[in-house]
């Protein structure tokens, strides 16, 4: 959903406003962030799957909105002036992804924010007793996860030069992102990146050799999620970390003082926005 907001921000501003691409990208991120704030405030008070259902419904509503509005071109979508320079877009995306990764690393592994997020994930009532306002931290995480997705949506629109409600707000994007995160390992920074490499390698091979059986693609993704949840609930990276820690043996009781050890449990919640793409 935030991806679509970024994509349409760039498309509308460039096409109808004649803005320069560079100026539209930050706005794509900003609008995604603002939307996340106002969506998060009420929905993040919901527990469990209601939040997911709420955001999913909203994504569908935005898709419908893009379908009927004139400004978005309705079902015909929007065509942007082509700029055929793949490496230009590659560096843009690399910059955004790199920056996002660095920011998340600092916030989650190093700053107090990461500890608060983990506390809430482990035990929300317990976290509240320690002065942590769960809704506030969740809204912050949500906004934080939406902004990079909005930025990437902006870049995507100009890169592909054509967006329509299905490509910008469609579920295939979200579904892929969920598979990446789950297969790679939820709650880790590295996991989803590993998942992304796997999903895209698979996708490329699939379209190269099996494109006659398109229908299989989503089925295979679905099966991948089911199998991962059943047999590798921590994902590939999470399982690897657990294995590594247990093969090192139990932690000894002698502690070398002052130390901050976050690396041993790098189970920070990657608020990897893709889930809410």
């Amino acid at each position: 959903m935030f991806f679509g907001v970024g994509a349409y921000t760039t498309a509308i501003l460039m096409k109808l406003g004649g803005w320069a691409f560079i100026l539209t990208v930050p706005l794509g991120g900003l609008f995604a962030g603002i939307l996340a704030f106002f969506v998060g405030l009420p929905t993040l008070r919901l527990k469990g799957s209601y939040f997911a259902i709420g955001t999913w419904a909203l994504a569908l509503a935005l898709q419908q909105l893009a379908l009927i509005l004139d400004i978005t071109g309705g079902p015909d979508g929007m065509r942007l002036p082509p700029y055929l320079n793949p490496s230009y877009f590659y560096y843009w995306m690399l910059g955004v992804v790199g920056g996002t990764f660095a920011l998340y690393w600092i916030l989650l592994e190093w700053a107090p924010f990461g500890l608060k997020v983990r506390a809430i994930r482990e035990d929300q009532d317990g976290a509240m007793a320690l002065g942590i306002n769960p809704t506030r931290v969740k809204v912050q995480s949500f906004v934080l996860s939406a902004v990079p997705v909005g930025l990437l949506g902006s870049i995507y629109a100009y890169w592909i030069t054509f967006i329509d409600p299905l490509s910008a707000f469609g579920d295939i994007l979200t579904d892929q992102a969920v598979v990446m995160a789950v297969v790679g390992g939820l709650g880790t920074l590295i996991g989803p990146a590993i998942g992304a490499v796997i999903v895209f390698t698979f996708k490329t091979l699939f379209w190269a050799y099996l494109s006659d059986y398109q229908v299989l693609y989503l089925i295979i993704l679905g099966v991948a999620i089911a199998l991962t949840v059943l047999f590798l609930p921590n994902g590939l990276w999470g399982t690897f970390i657990n294995y590594r820690d247990s093969s090192r043996g139990m932690r000894t009781q002698s502690v070398s003082r002052p130390r901050i050890d976050a690396s041993e449990h790098s189970d920070e919640q990657e608020k990897g926005a893709p889930e809410h793409g």
Partner: peptide
Amino acid sequence: VKPFPGLSVLENVIIAGLCRYGTRR
């Protein structure tokens, strides 16, 4: 009891201290 089981004992207490002492250190 409501410990944060995935975190170390020290981290559990650091989290509690955050609301008095803003920084992790």
